[in-house]
Every structure is written in C-alpha cells, then in structure tokens.
Design a protein around this nucleic acid. Sequence first.
RNA 1: GCCGGAGUGGCGGAAUGGUAGACGCCAGGGACUUAAAAUCCCUUGUUCCGAAUGGGACGUGCCGGUUCGAGUCCGGCCUCCGGCACCA
Length: 788
Amino acid sequence: YPSGDIHMGHFRNYTMTDAVARKKMMEGRQVLHPFGWDAFGLPAEQAAIKRGMHPHDWTLANIAQSKATLQKVGISFDWTREVASCFPDYYKWTQWLFIQFFKHGLAYRKESEVNWCDHCNTVLANEQAAGGICWRCESPVGRKALTQWYLKITAYADRLQDDIDTLKGWPENLKTLQRNWIGRSTGAEIEFRLEDGTKIPIFTTRPDTIYGVTFMAIAPDAPLLSTLAIPDRHRPAIDAFVAKMRRQSSVERMAEAEREGVDTGVTVVNPVSGEKIPLWVADYVLAGYGTGCIMAVPAHDQRDFEFARKYGLPIRPVIRTGDTLSAGDAIEAATSDYGVMANSGPFDGLAGQAGVDAVIAQLEKEGTGRAQVQYHLTDWLTSRQRYWGAPIPMIHCPTCGVVPVPEKDLPVELPAGEIKYLPTGRSPLADVPEYMTVTCPTCGKEAQRDPDTMDCFVCSSWYFLRYLDPHNDSALFERKKAASWLPIDCYIGGITHATGHLIYFRFFTKFLKDIGWLTVDEPAINMFNHGMVLDGEGRVMSKSKGNVVSPIDLMARYGVDPVRLTMFFAAPGDREVLWGDAAHAGLVGAERFLLKVERFVADAREAVGTQTVDPETRFDPDSLTAVERDAYRKLHETIAKIDRDFEALQLNTHTAAVMELVGTLGSGADLRPELRFVCAAAIARLLAPLTPHLAEEWWEVLGFGPTVFRAGWPQVDQAALPAATMVIAVQVNGRLRGQVTVASDAPESVVVAAAEADAKIAPHLSGDRIKQIYVPGRLINFVVRLRK
RNA sequence: GCCGGAGUGGCGGAAUGGUAGACGCCAGGGACUUAAAAUCCCUUGUUCCGAAUGGGACGUGCCGGUUCGAGUCCGGCCUCCGGCACCA
C-alpha cells in the first residue's frame, strides 16, 4: 500500500525476496521478481485525506518516494513489470474480471445487514470487520441494511478448504487459520413447525441430540422473527428486547457476560419426537450464521445450558457417555461429547455418527430435514461508498435492469479533477452527473452507472497474474505465459493477510482456471511468512507511538549492505525481530565483518598479482599443506551448509557460517596465493545475495566483470570434505568424560583403545562394562556398572 | 473458550535424539601506538574443589516418562505472543 514511505517491515520483507531472487539468478535460473502498488482503496485514500491531498496526487507522490527508497535498498525488482492498481491500464482488467464473475453468476447484488464503519463512511467485508473492529481505523463496526455487490466466494468454499491439504509448502499455522476462517461444519438442516404449519428451519451439527431439545431460540435481528404471529401479550417485551439489542454494537453484545432472552409465547413442534416446545428470542443466537435460529439442547450445549438454568427451562440429557445418565437437574455443565443415544425413542442405543446418520435418514424420509454443510465464510461484500477505487463496471437501466458495461468500453475511468471525494456515506461518484448518466448498452435508453467502487482487495486478488504480461492491452495476460510461469515458487509476506488476501487470491485462481485462463488450481506452492519487525520493547512500530525507525536514516549512516546484513543476522526469517538498541549494536558487528572481508579480498587479489585464477579451481587435498587442507575443507563445508540453510531462509546461520569461515581463514597469508584467491572469490559470491553492492565491488576488485550475479554459485568439492583425523566425544553412562582424536578411518576398536588409554577417561571406566554405543565419527558411550 | 506459535547466558540467537550456548553484540584483560582510533589475540552459563596443569556438580519454563544418551520424543502443567471468537 502506498500509505507512507518504506519502513523496516518492508525492508525486511523485500530484502528477503531479494536474497532469494539473487541466489536463484546465480544458480542460473530464470527469475521473475516483480513489484506492484496496491494503490486503490481505503489505505491509500485515508492516508491522502489525512494530509489534505487529492488521493491521486498523494498516491503518485508516495509511489515515487517509496520506489526511490526501494531502489536505494538495492532490491532486484524487475521495474519493467511494475504495476499499480490505480492506473486505467490495470483496473481495466479488474473491471473485466468483475464482469466475468457477473456473467458466471458469481457477482450479484443483495440487500442484507452489512458491516458499516461510521468513521470511514463505508461498508466493510467480514474479513475487514473481524472482531467487530474496522481494519483501517479500529473503530467499532455497526450494522446497516443495504443493497450491495457480493462475490460468491462460498461457491468455492469446499475447494478452498479441501485444497489446503495440497499446499505442502505452506506453513501449518497459516493453513490452520484458513481452515478455521472457512470453517466448514457438517450436520443437518431441520424444519421445526409452528402449529399453523409455518416452517422454522435450524442448522445443527448434532442431530443425534434432537430428543434433548427443550426449547428453540431465534436471533433478535433474524428477519424471520418479524414475520411471526406473536401473541399480543408477548409483543411489548419482545419489541423492547429487540430494540435494546439493536442499540448494542456487536462488541458490546459479545462482552455481555450473561445470556439474555424473552419468550415469544409461540409453540413449536419437534419434527422427530412430536414434542411441543417454546420459542425464545435469545441474544446469543447470531442472525448471520446458519438460519438465525437454533434448536436448544441444554444438556449438551453449554450456552443452551446456561440459558435454561437462568430461565428455568427443562434440561434433558439424551447422550450417555458413561454407564449412567444423570438427571437433568443434577448436572453442573453441558457435555458435548459424542456417546450413545438415550431417552430418544426408537434411536436409543445408537452411538456417535451412527446416531447422527439415523436421525438424518429419518428426517429425509419424512421430508422435514436433510444433511447440510455450513461455512463460517460468507460471500465477499465488494462494493464501497468511496471515491478512490476501481469503478464497478455496471449500468442500472430502468428497462433492462443491471447490465454490464460492454467489454469494448472498458475501462470505466474514475472521474478526475474537481471531484468532492471526501466520504459522506454515499459514493462521491453519485454526485457527478456526467459520470453517472449513460445510455443502456442493451436498449439505448438513458441509464445510470453504478456509483460504487471496488474493495481494494479485489484489485489485489489478481496482481500476480498481471506481472506475467503487464503491458498487454488486449487481454488480462497471454495464457501461455501464465502456463509457463505459474505457480509462484516463492511467496514471502506477512501472516496478516492469512484470512483475507491469501484466500481471495486462491479464489480468483480457481475461478480463472474454471473459465479456461489458467492451468493451475493454486497460485503459490511455497509460502513463507516473515516475522514482524518490532521496536526494542517488542511493540509494533507506528507513527503515533513515535517509535518508527527509518531504514533511510540507517542506510545513510552505515550504508545499505551493513543494514541488510544486520537484519538477516538478527533472527531466522520467520521469527520477529526486535529492532532496538541491541540491533543497532549489531550494526557495528556487521560493519566490522564486512570490512574484514574487504581486506581479505584485496589482499588475496594482491597475492596473485596479475595472474588470472579460475574461481572454481579444484585442489588435490594431498598436494596441500595441513593448514591449506583445513582451509579448503572449511570452505567447502561452508558452501554445503549454506545451501541447506538458504532453502529454509535461515539467513542468520548463513551469515554466521561465512563469519566462521572468514574467522578460520584469518589473514590468509599462510595459504598459497591461488587458494587464497579461490577462497576470496567464494566468499564474495556466498555473500552476494545478502550484500549485493559490496559483493559486486569485491568481484570487480578480484578482476572479474561485469557482474557477480552471472558468475554462478560456488559448488561443493566433495574431495575437499574428508578430514585426516576426527574428534570423538567419549561418554561414560551418558556423561561427557573427555574426547579422543583418531584417524578419520579408524574403526570402533581403535576408538575404544584410545579412550581406555586416555588418563582422564580411564578412571571412569573401572567397573563392569555392560555395553558400548558407537556413533561413527561423533561419539562413543560406555555403559558401566560401578563395583561397590 | 477454541486454534496456532514460543519459552536456551547480560542481549540477539545456534544445535539431523549424540560434546548445550555456534556466530555476533556487550563486558573484562592484553598486543600494537608517544597517545587515541582502527586492527589483532585472550577470557566470558552458574557453582564447588585445587597452589596449579586440572577436576567435579548443576544448567535449555515446571513435573514426570521413554532412551545407553533428551533443548530435541511422549504425557501432564505454567507463562507469554498471535489469530478466531456466543459459528449452534
């Protein structure tokens, strides 16, 4: 989002993708490392309004500023593929996609209770109102009945849930977040009936508890409630209760410790047992989940239990989990475990899933219910009453109804210039007559444009596809380019988008596959969540707290590469980094180390004079001195270790390994010049993904050109790895007692003999030797029983 | 409440079931220098025994278990961080 200049979090994210891109380039791969601006929508517009600037002007200025900073950091983005979602050549295709959704019945309008932020003056998607708090301004979210545009993501709920299992390269916690957010539960829809025949459907995951239903409960804001014939004497109490609930925000209602409700005076019939039970209005029933109405089983649901206790409603256990079934008035809490059905007429004795299935079969036979699946995921509310967004490409015609803008007329450009763009609660575009008034593409009569704009997450659900073909003005992208590049091999981002963007972009990918544009089911096979950058006290950096550290200031003081190296070295990539005084002390270490490398490189170059040495030169270990052999081995051990660490983005141990190598080599003065040079050339390349500017410089000092990033990645020389001797740790009864040095091909018997001959170890071995465990090359453990 | 993740020196952190604390920072000591900076070298978990080379005990949030051997595996807790949250 261009909502401010680059901060340490961006710095960490992009230096990580940069390290990956550069290493893969050095390995000879084709790398597409693109960048784009999520420049439409609330974040950019709010930032602009705060500064009293037009969103267009502010966004462009901010993009220029941020881009300059990113280039200073040396991120290897392919700027020829840069995209920005606020430009017509991009949002033309956002609009085109919206029309495809519409044509396939997946974009639709409906009236319902929506999330409304009074501060931002717009509706919000569920994902943007999590916990009842607006994702941008953090004020409480209210409700409003409005007609809005939705994308039917629920049509993909099953595939979005099931295919999580195919995402082998995604972190487990991210997958769990998505599973919970999609929130599939299986059960049954069951129709209870009023005595006049009116159907009251409910959803339950536990049809096997149906004989334990002692009342029903409906949400205060459920539309069904207002259509019920409620006895006059109950009317005033219900109206008062509903009015009270309406005044409370969702946050307040959740905070309410005690459950509350009112009897409607209406009687309902249980379709399985035939029993007559009362219908209550209850504050703990949600209008937005299931049918807005529940069957209450106090013995087996804790919320129903508490409600029943408070209002003196019967509690009847019908699931036996132990030997006996407690009486309802004796139990202290509901038990929701599966068990054996009891007090359940013909179903008595059925256990667990068998009971669930039997009840569903009965319901289906009687036509009073059926197996059903429910999701926490709801359709995605995508229209916004704001100026700065992609206009919804739809026309409202009095004769033809809702008609999409013909594709040849795209993009529908956002009016520029003297527009009153400040949010008022209705779209600012509605007040621009020359924008609003159009002719209907179907009948040619006068019609109105849709005044709303799209949620910025629509724009950002497909940006990764535009990178493949960013300048194509006749299609979203060329299909064969997508077929060759996708899926994304490496996606690095924060966990914050777990239940928003990272579900939406999977949804778009599946849709585009279904309509023939893509060949993949999933956009990204490998996902890496980098840790956050916090301040020294572990707090989020924010302007209001005044604890923001600017990478620009640090780079000016220390240079870019020491800052990059310090960030990589601070922690493994997936862990958070506290960027406080300790991190600044770390900068000193990075600076020292890089200066040391610089000297090593310069000295190595000087040692070989004008001679040219192939950086991949192999040495026969037998022809080297002992010191040289150790140095050569250490070099190749380091290359091997880095190859392992890098794949897991453990750039902290990558850095440590190079530091250790440089420490071991010392000045390099005791190495023959060719070997010294080969070590220097390897070090320069091993550091190149992390400190690209310095590595490039070193590469030139060594006499090469034009770029280290086409110089290939150092390859392990297996011949360098075997050592002449090995150090074996000696344990007695699992306790370390010393170590012995033996020839590296020594058999176990030689190790045992060496241990027995060692003056420090031998005293511990007196006693009955029961057994010995030898771990070749590492350790030997003697199990000894001491004689008394 | 449910779901994830994490607890290791003064600090950031390292450790395929096999020598806990790599690497770096800080701190202390030394070399070089007229001096300083820079650089290089050494020490640096706690504790006990010893004049000393040295040796012992304890130590990865807590309690138990498996194992020749556990920071790592298993069971039961505690604390912190994050996500979702009256989801029927």
